[in-house]
Simulated assay, not measured.
Amino acid sequence: MTTYIPNLTLPSGVFNNLPVSILLPIALGTAVGYSTRPKDTKRQYLSWKQPPFRPPPWVFGPAWTLLYGLMGYASYRAVHLGTSPLNSPATIAAAKHGATLYSIQLGLNLAWMPLFFGFNRPVEATIDVLALLGINGYLAYLWGGSVDSTAGCLLVPYVAWLGFASYLSAGTGYLNNWDLSTPKDDATKRA
């Protein structure tokens, strides 16, 4: 089990404020999405060889907005309810451990899009999403079993999506020989 690491954990004020808990991941995810130039990202996405069952580009915005909101609400429930002085020391410790894990996974989550689309690094992006899958699977287990079952359940769609995202990330990397650099003919069209 990881430990509570204050320097790697979002401030408790984030977790104890419901609107902030929900809106922070949505706002950060939206900012990262727009920083990678959505029109360029969509063009890149459609130009690469893709594994079967890839969704159309328009699915990602609504899906991630919902998932960020669910993960934010899960974090609020787990940390706000779990750190209540009325709880056992074990429950409080699990809630705090989860807060550190949640903070780390949020950073990893925000790194995936720049890695994959900005830097064209599919190997690193796939490692990132696999780490996210493992951390969030454990986080759902930790929070769901030791702190608040609803918080654990709220993370299940996110964990499922991360499993699918791992498949898409690895599949796209593999089908494109782990090279997502812009083809020369695309580079000359933009010049």
Rank of each mutant, 00 (worst) to 15 (best):
V32T: 13
L70Q: 05
T9A: 05
P114C: 05
L139W: 03
G72L: 13
S181T: 11
S149R: 05
L168D: 00
G137A: 08
L23G: 01
Y174S: 11
G29S: 08
A31R: 04
P25K: 09
Y174G: 03
D128K: 11
I135M: 08
R77S: 09
T9G: 00
A131T: 15
R190N: 14
A151L: 04
I127C: 08
V14T: 02
R121E: 12
A95H: 07
T9S: 09
G144K: 03
Y174V: 09
Y167V: 13
Q105W: 00
L154N: 00
L70Y: 09
G61F: 07
D148H: 04
L155Y: 00
L67V: 07
G33H: 13
S166N: 08
L162W: 02
L81H: 14
W112L: 08
M1L: 06
A27L: 09
I104V: 14
L66T: 05
P6A: 13
R77V: 12
C153V: 00
V79A: 08
L70D: 06
A160V: 07
F60K: 09
S47T: 11
L180F: 15
N17E: 02
Y68P: 13
K189Q: 10
G98W: 10
G171M: 09
H80C: 07
S21D: 01
K96S: 12
I5M: 13
T3K: 14
N177D: 08
T65R: 11
A191I: 03
L86N: 12
Y73I: 03
L106D: 07
S35F: 14
G137T: 10
P6R: 10
N120A: 11
W48M: 15
G33Q: 08
L154E: 00
G29V: 14
T100C: 06
Y4V: 02
